[in-house]
Design a protein around this nucleic acid. Structure first.
Lengths: 346, 346
DNA sequence: ATTTTTATTGTGTTCGAGCACATTTTAACA
DNA sequence: TGTTAAAATGTGCTCGAACACAATAAAAAT
């Protein structure tokens, strides 16, 4: 049977004291070759699993983790992240970890930089952040790294050797899924990819989604679909899109690459004679409203709550269970329609 | 600040010994009214959270949980359950819990009864089971209950006051989702609900799904769809379905209420001129093959792995963290197509 | 008033790992 | 060979909760 061994057991089996076993296990040195061999022989033979209860009971050090996310006052997309992080906090509240949330204004680079400075001042053991601003995020991560602070990111991909882990979705694949759905919705015709660019930088997000979207149709039998791209900034958005649709009456499907599908829905809902297929992102209140009245056909769920949860727990578990942090964790891309929308709020 | 209090702290604050505090906390009696009052006053004032590490370190009792699931040799649907249970085992391996898996033959009531007897002989603290056989499951659960053994179920719903928890999906809603998908796939026409009944009993499953499916169309503008039901037992399945489709050429969509959509796909794939929309359940190898070649349009993912995982962890956490077991946990109903299928194997 | 019984309260050990410190062994050097 | 330095090894306390057992106080019985 798989008996549970303790350090004391190992010490007895190897004929040494538990202090020596401890030194071997933690590679603290000051062990003779002879003793090292004896202990290692035992260790090879049995499957020693340190008792994590005893360990964390003894350890008085409290690990500190800071999470940097955009303030949901600016964009409701981020609200679920708070819940995910709080779930993680709750789950591990008995352990020696402290998780602190720092909010920044997603429309302000300065706010991002400043918040990172605040985080740095609290000198945490690890930071989980949403790298919304490419350059500034890289700088911050570099600084953390130089101070021995672990950095993980989620939601937005960012390549850097100083990053321990990324949690998010495969955006290229996400675009392909949207394509497949629109393929089903309108069997042929013209589709426009709509990029509603906010002030802040999610260009990479949108680009990857567009690539995936186009990739799907390129590998399809030709002639059935025509794909266009339409970029628009927020202020002039309403009139511009209206004009665009009027001047392109062939358009039968729209793919909105951000969480702002409801804004598009608002416009096309005014013209109910001509149903335009609409696929967008994220389960915001506004989007769900138009999903339920079937102006929006499908929403793709990016699961920000779970992203934040997993990003947080992987750091926590790294500290208290010495678990390895997997460099990349890609979440399933959930397809949501009228019928299963409410399931994703659990 | 939210200081963490220990029993010693409480004892000092109340001016009694830690033994007395312990007796108050555990209601072991043998405490004078005076002391009781003093301790309770402190307890009201502060928020005492017992250190679970220390507790489980001291407790030598090992909790035993048995999980009863169908043998995946008979039906590959159950394979992921094993993985989910093993994930739970791994996650809590440092704690005082032992999780044991018992397999039974889903085609044999006798096997189910016998396995329950084996479980009973090992006198566990809790049992998680798939109540495939209605009457026998109720009997088993009644027996467990009388011996003080906690029973939880997953995958199949079953009503009994002796059941602590159910993990699964809302099958009615699941049927509605299938309906919505077929509504999109074929804008109008005749749809057949196909019940492929295995020897074992999942009639309730299928009935609920059918109800949800029909419910969706009943609330729709009339005249667009006609819904039929087709029941078939396995042996004669192939020829019967073929004949059925030939004699009902109006059928443009099929909803297979079990994981056997691939068997239907095999038949309709032979007649590629007439594309029939097909929606089924579960990410089996066989189903995925036909999903990828687009014979199957959508699969609904019942997430057996997560069901088993959550069923197991909720019992484990009940024992080691004294967490309450929520009586019902309904999982999201995932819509799967060619593009996001592989995401669900993580 | 003294002993006995009962009720109440306090003390000390345990769980396993981690680490400081004490002790022993070995090596280095005069 | 004796002395000192260095290396290796062992011992013992701690973390917080649980619980057995010892100790004390209060009540009851003689």
């Amino acid at each position: 049977m798989d008996k549970i061994y303790t350090i004391k057991d190992i010490a007895e089996l190897a004929g040494v004291s538990k202090g020596t076993v401890d030194r071997v296990l933690h590679k603290r040195g000051k062990v003779s070759e002879d003793a090292l061999k004896k202990v290692n022989e035992v260790l090879d033979r049995i499957d020693y699993q340190p008792n994590l209860m005893a360990r964390s009971l003894k350890k008085t050090q409290i690990y500190s983790i800071c999470v940097l996310i955009p303030d949901s006052a600016n964009d409701p997309y981020w609200q679920p992240c708070i819940d995910g992080i709080n779930d993680a906090k709750k789950e591990f509240k008995s352990f020696n970890v402290k998780v602190e949330i720092f909010l920044f204004d997603p429309t302000s680079t300065a706010s991002f930089v400043e918040t990172n400075q605040n985080v740095l001042n609290s000198s945490p053991d690890a930071v989980l952040l949403v790298p919304l601003f490419h350059k500034e995020a890289l700088d911050a991560i570099e600084t953390y790294n130089s101070k021995g602070i672990i950095s993980s990111i989620f939601n937005n991909q960012l390549k850097s050797s100083a990053i321990k882990s990324f949690v998010g979705q495969d955006l290229f694949q996400s675009g392909r899924i949207a394509a497949r759905l629109l393929d089903l919705l309108i069997k042929k015709g013209t589709i426009a990819i709509v990029h509603i660019d906010e002030d802040y930088e999610n260009a990479i997000h949108m680009q990857e989604k567009e690539k995936g979207f186009r990739d799907y149709f390129e590998n399809l039998e030709t002639g059935k679909f025509e794909i266009k791209t339409f970029k628009v900034k927020h202020p002039q958005f309403k009139t511009t899109l209206k004009e665009y649709l009027e001047s392109n009456p062939a358009i039968e499907g729209l793919f909105v690459t951000t969480s702002k599908a409801y804004q598009v829905a608002k416009i096309i809902a005014k013209n109910p004679e001509k149903k335009i297929a609409l696929v967008g992102y994220d389960l915001l209140e506004n989007n769900l409203e138009y999903l339920n009245n079937k102006t929006i056909d499908f929403l793709i769920h990016q699961n920000p709550k779970r992203q934040a949860y997993l990003g947080t727990t992987s750091l926590i578990e790294h500290f208290i269970f010495e678990k390895e942090i997997s460099p990349e964790k890609l979440l399933p891309i959930d397809i949501v329609n009228t019928e299963n929308a409410k399931d994703y709020f659990l």
